[in-house]
Design a protein around this nucleic acid. Structure first.
Lengths: 216, 216
DNA sequence: TAACCTACCAAACACTTGTTAGGGAACGGT
DNA sequence: ACCGTTCCCTAACAAGTGTTTGGTAGGTTA
């Protein structure tokens, strides 16, 4: 995403980069990012101290700076990694060129799968992206949000023109409605629950598409 | 329309009243709470410094402590005031003893009215209530949430038994769905928009009850 | 005039924050 | 045996945090 060398991973080419504290084994790095994401999601980014993260990881605060060069770059890497994977899935769906209704169904299902895999990252994204996006470093958050809106709004418009969706609704309101109902699930979703992401997606889609009132 | 002063200290539910620096004219106090709420909502509670609030109010940080005895008690008063008014509205709806569908409609409409009047407080509530509720001082947040769940879940259950709502949906999932769709609106709602709270409520209800897919 | 209250300022305090510098133990390669 | 790397610790720093203390201009009351 915003990482300088997004190309092929682990390029061993000795770039003229300064020591960006990159471990040879990114294994521990990911471990630490996971615990950091968990704490960020639970307490909020600003309320989380690096000492708390280090504590949770079984080390001291200063030691974190061997792996990362700032608290900010931790949340940066968490969010950009998540968004990269998210768009891998979304782009695949959009490239399939399905009908409007099927596209919505696929996007919702894919979203719940991402929530399942990146629960913490999604929670962080929801809470913090708004004021993080103000910093130029996190410009990709705004970009992603615009791309997001374009994909969903476009699909909804196609669906209205196509007759799949109701034409009497404010389409921007509908967009926010669908978007929010999907992503807020990250705030209560627990992967150990009995609902699989696909099952939750099915029920959500049933509500969003057909409503909760009984039909006669 | 500004509300006529409630006269008797609108005893907000939660906080134990000790010797709190209470002004003779609560007017300035409310002014300060409004600006504080605005900053809290925009930046997040932890990311907001008392110096920033004071700056926005045109005074110095220490001066705030003439009106309030801590930053925490500011957000406390903001949230408890909001919840008190919210439950005034909810209790009136519930006391009317309407049918399940009409109750849901009335609750949703009332919710959007509250969002209209307390946009900042609602935004704060959504972002911060989760970790604020951990402190005993904010126990009323948990209480309110339980009361909330009871009212909504009960109404949904009545509606299923009654035939107004579909019986094939997971009712807890439906509850979270309806609850979230309503309250996340506070994150994008702007009172200067062209939609009145009632109009937004109408569209939301239309989507939640009947779905966005076109019926044949 | 004198006492008093309101609403603020000025300046500090104690503490927490993210971050850095230097060092050292373990380990593998040569 | 030597070197280099990896990964962490110890100990501090400077900036920022919420909060307190003492003071004071202006208005109101007696």
């Amino acid at each position: 995403m915003n990482r300088p060398d997004t190309g092929s991973d682990n390029g061993h080419v000795p770039t003229a980069k300064k020591k960006t504290t990159v471990s040879a084994t990114p294994e521990r790095r990911r471990e630490l990012l996971n615990t950091a994401a968990e704490v960020f999601a639970a307490q909020g980014y600003n309320a989380t101290t690096v000492r708390r993260i280090a504590d949770e990881a079984g080390m001291l605060a200063g030691s974190l700076y061997y792996h990362f060069d700032s608290k900010e770059s931790m949340v940066d890497e968490i969010l950009s990694t998540f968004l990269t994977e998210l768009w891998d899935g979304y782009d695949a769906v959009l490239a399939a060129d399905l009908g409007p209704r099927e596209t919505i169904e696929a996007l919702v299902t894919e979203s719940f799968r991402e929530i399942d895999r990146h629960r913490a990252a999604v929670a962080i994204y929801q809470k913090e992206s708004k004021h993080l996006a103000a910093q130029p470093r996190f410009g990709y958050l705004t970009e992603s949000q615009q791309k997001f809106e374009k994909a969903w709004l476009g699909t909804l418009e196609r669906g209205v023109a196509d007759g799949a969706f109701r034409a009497d609704l404010d389409i921007r309101l509908t967009y926010r409605f669908v978007r929010d109902t999907v992503w807020v699930a990250a705030s209560w979703y627990r992967p150990d629950g009995h609902h699989s992401p696909e099952e939750i997606a099915r029920q959500y889609l049933s509500m969003v598409l057909d409503g909760i009132a009984r039909r006669d």
